[in-house]
Simulated scan of single mutants.
Amino acid sequence: HNERRPEACPECGTLDHLVACGPGVERIAEEVVAHFPDARTIVLSSDLLGGVRRLRLELEAVANGEADIVIGTQLVAKGHNFPGMTLVGVVDADLGLANGDPRAAERTFQLLSQVTGRAGRTGKKSLGLLQTYQPDHPVMRAIVSGDSEAFYEREIAERERAGLPPFGRLAGIIVSAATRAEAESHARGLRRAAPQASDLFVLGPAEAPLSLIGGRHRFRLLVQGERRADMQGFIRAMLAEGPKLRGSVRVQVDIDPQSFL
């Protein structure tokens, strides 16, 4: 389901004033400065003005204790050591669970473990705060309890029940084109050309989560099957029987994909 953004505010009728306003690091920084005007605040993001050199300087400043509050993207979770940090807060901690990636729970658990692990590394008393709309989700319960073994046992059981890797096979087929109609038409043609098989089936096509990249519209099909299924042969036959590449259409095949975007 999708709806176009209205041109006027449905409440007051003002035109051209509805814009996306999410919890980005810049907006969070504005609110932090308003609440804690005397604190030394640093914003860490891969798209900082000044590029890699400035980012390196900011990271060194944090490590040296020259900041009271650090606001950052996932970047702050990756391999940095901030010895003075004793409090970590994560805004929209369950955001990563809301996509079609079969590894979403695993990736979110890994990321939250990393980012909350930034606090208290030197043995000081520390606290991690997670903002979530799903406090009973297995990922959130595992983070709070610290029971990673129970989480992974459950994740393995879920994957085995669903026939997902490593207990089954997956292949992603991305169809892209200069227009949405071209991409969708070709993807539907491939779906119709899929051979009959008892151990393999096709999901889609549907718009890819990143539906427009570099001016090209993208549709995705997902082939799922048993571990011993002839995935390559199935896709080879599907491509051979499907519509021929014309115009701006391109087809990309990804066996056992690591990304579902």
Rank of each mutant, 00 (worst) to 15 (best):
V144D: 08
E106D: 07
T108H: 13
V175I: 15
A171G: 00
G117L: 10
A178S: 14
R103C: 09
Q110K: 09
T122E: 15
P135F: 08
G123E: 02
Q134G: 04
A183M: 11
V115H: 01
I156N: 04
R141Y: 08
E149N: 15
E184C: 08
R107D: 06
R107P: 03
D136E: 13
A181S: 12
R169P: 11
E153W: 01
R161D: 02
I174M: 14
R159L: 01
R161M: 02
I156C: 08
G163K: 05
G163I: 03
G146Y: 00
Q114Y: 09
G120T: 05
Y133P: 05
S145L: 08
T108D: 13
S145Y: 11
E149G: 14
A119F: 14
V144Y: 03
A178R: 15
R121H: 10
R188P: 09
A183P: 13
L164H: 07
A181F: 07
F151T: 10
L129D: 06
R159C: 06
G146C: 01
A177D: 04
P165F: 02
L127Y: 13
A183S: 15
R141H: 06
Q134S: 13
R161F: 03
A183T: 12
Q114G: 00
K124A: 14
G172I: 06
R121Y: 04
M140V: 00
G120Q: 12
